[in-house]
Amino acid sequence: MNEIINGLQALMARDFQFAHPRDANGGLVAVVGIRVHRGVFDILQLFGEHDADAARIPGDEADVLFPSKVLWRTTGSAREVINDLLALAEPVPEVGAEAKGCWLPTHAGRSAWLAASA
């Protein structure tokens, strides 16, 4: 568990922002981390200790949770996925259209804006 916590802290140091989407009853659905930079979205979804995925998608993607185009993706345990994401090379500038951020659903009828890092 400490490896997961350390990994999440390393992602925060790399400007990942986190949201905690909930279902209609208020139950936690996932922990979602997104970094918007250099024309891409890097996204991490943690559903449990043994169920996680991460992806890099173009910055012009309309739906970051269900993208139509994926540049890179991994799935597995939270520890493995976080380590894969931390090992991912920085994107070349302007891979996709430059994004200012994205809206992420957090609760029934509510969303949070996750802004691009500089």
Rank of each mutant, 00 (worst) to 15 (best):
R73S: 12
A99G: 09
N25S: 13
P58E: 15
V81Y: 13
P67F: 04
F16T: 11
N6A: 14
S111M: 06
A99V: 08
I5L: 09
S111H: 14
D60E: 15
S77F: 12
G96R: 03
A54R: 11
D84C: 01
C102M: 03
M12A: 12
E3I: 04
G26F: 03
I5C: 02
L114S: 10
I43A: 10
I82K: 10
P21H: 06
V29M: 08
A30L: 05
A97Y: 10
E61D: 09
A13M: 05
W103Y: 11
E98T: 14
G101F: 02
S111I: 02
A13N: 15
I43Y: 12
Q9R: 13
V32H: 10
V64S: 07
R73N: 06
V70N: 11
E49G: 09
G109A: 07
H20Q: 11
L88D: 13
V64Q: 13
H37T: 09
D51C: 00
D53Q: 14
G33C: 01
P105C: 00
R79A: 14
G33K: 01
L104C: 08
N2M: 01
G7E: 08
V32W: 13
A30Y: 07
L114C: 02
A112V: 06
A89L: 09
H20S: 08
Q9C: 02
E90Y: 01
F66Y: 15
W113D: 11
R35W: 04
T74P: 01
D60S: 14
V70L: 03
V32T: 14
V29H: 07
P21W: 03
T74R: 05
E98L: 01
W72H: 03
I82H: 09
V40H: 10
G33L: 01
M12H: 08
L28S: 10
A97I: 12
E80C: 01
K69T: 13
E80D: 15
G109Y: 14
V70G: 09
G101W: 04
V92T: 11
V92S: 07
P91I: 03
H20G: 04
R79C: 05
S68R: 15
K100M: 04
H37Y: 04
P58N: 14
A52H: 14
Q17A: 04
A108G: 04
